[in-house]
Design a protein around this nucleic acid. Structure first.
Lengths: 244, 244
DNA sequence: CGAGGGTTTGAAGTGCATCAAATAGTGTGG
DNA sequence: CCACACTATTTGATGCACTTCAAACCCTCG
């Protein structure tokens, strides 16, 4: 398979473009540029003029904003199959956050104006985009609730649950997808708090932490621990990663 | 003007329907039912099957969810011109939150299936819906940041700023739109915390609180106080109420 | 092996929540 | 127009969760 059809395949696998007609996807693929980024590489910064948006081939990209007094708010940590930067379309073509690789990654960059044209001329895509954003919004909605109602160990527990195959209630091993530092940031807590909260989670639920992998004897016990402080029943399927 | 054309006018003034063609709006207006609700009236509850969505004629409606252990997360407090319940379309026709009047209010109820049909057949509306949800999502995005980065007095200050005419930097009087209790809930803090934080804001910025109206000598000073802990420049126009 | 970042631990401080009670405000019926 | 009932708001005292600062440890990679 050549580079171009690889890109085509990646695009057609993303939620945003799934089921779209091939002429549109081909046009996209033709304008695509593949970028390799080292850890720490900044793809764009908040409020910068936006010309392109991105699809992740592999790796992890942190989306964040910085305040005047130096604090950082992590919007999301995205991975393979996720798109980012496309919502600049709705923000006067300014990026609504900054994007930085937290692992060495490979991303596809695409012109925003193609999306714009498509919204004006392809109702099927517009509808698909609408559903995709609505899903995003729903996910966010739940995150607001989690942040305000769950305590630190529960938030970690909830995060772990979303990494498991939720249909399996029994024993399983979870691999943390990236540094604990970044998980802490994504969950809106300090690295120290994360460390201590994970320890508490260990004594409360009997999970075993070995570096970046975590052994769980009973997934259901985890869900009892986290989901009592949540308005959604487990499995909270809608909050799973966009790519799924 | 008869009831029907009053409804038509209300609809055409909401962000979601602004600029839509009149045949669509007329069809909507014909299926509309006006409801008067007393304070405390519950319009629907979370996860209930959704048949209709709502537009507020006047009053205040609280959107919220409750957790298994009894805590309540306030999603939003909406008012005149706002729509709610329409996102059930993207949630398998289940309401994603509960809705309750916090003041006696008047709302228009409309069948969800009309929206659904329109999305399938009216690209212009679909596009408008897309932009409307994207704006909502953006607003939410900022609220996540605020909740995680600003402290209680800053959050209140930010809330007050959004009630002012942001082009006027000088003296002004702000009227709180609803009970302090509900403002506290919307900002994710306890009533007691709200009271104390407002007092601190008073000593820090020199505002004067008299019941539900607040005198401000210098709007710019308020923005310095709140916006240094925010990644958005003042005036943060995009976070203003949906209706504006 | 040594440097540097990630992670853990300890000690101390801060902010918000909670519980309890006083006070202010509002609407009611008399 | 007043007294009462009820709710909203404020205040005080206390506790807990998370943060902050500091230092140790650990792991990986040149």
């Amino acid at each position: 398979m050549n580079e171009n059809s690889l890109i085509y395949k990646t695009l057609s696998d993303t939620p945003l473009f799934k089921g779209q007609d091939s002429s549109f996807l081909s046009r996209m693929a033709e304008s695509a540029v593949t970028l390799r980024c080292e850890k720490g590489k900044v793809l764009f910064v908040h409020d910068e003029q936006a010309e392109r948006f991105y699809v992740i081939r592999h790796g992890w990209i942190k989306l964040f904003r910085e305040t005047l007094d130096g604090a950082q708010a992590v919007i999301d940590i995205t991975t393979t199959g996720d798109t980012f930067g496309e919502t600049a379309l709705f923000q006067n073509n300014l990026y609504p956050y900054s994007a930085e690789a937290v692992e060495s990654s490979e991303v596809i960059s695409l012109p925003l104006h193609l999306l714009n044209t498509e919204i004006d001329t392809n109702p099927q895509f517009t509808k698909s985009f609408l559903f995709s954003i609505a899903k995003e919004k729903d996910r966010q909605d739940k995150e607001i609730e989690h942040a305000s109602i769950q305590n630190a160990p529960q938030r970690i527990c909830c995060f772990l649950l979303r990494l498991t195959d939720q249909s399996n209630k029994g024993k399983t091993i979870i691999h943390l997808p990236y540094d604990k530092m970044f998980i802490a940031a994504k969950l809106g807590m300090q690295a120290e708090t994360f460390s201590r909260a994970l320890k508490k989670l260990k004594t409360d639920t009997g999970i075993r932490v070995k570096g970046s992998s975590i052994e769980v004897d009973n997934v259901e016990q985890l869900s009892n621990y986290a989901c009592q402080a949540c308005s959604f029943e487990f499995p909270c399927k809608d909050i799973k990663r966009k790519a799924s």
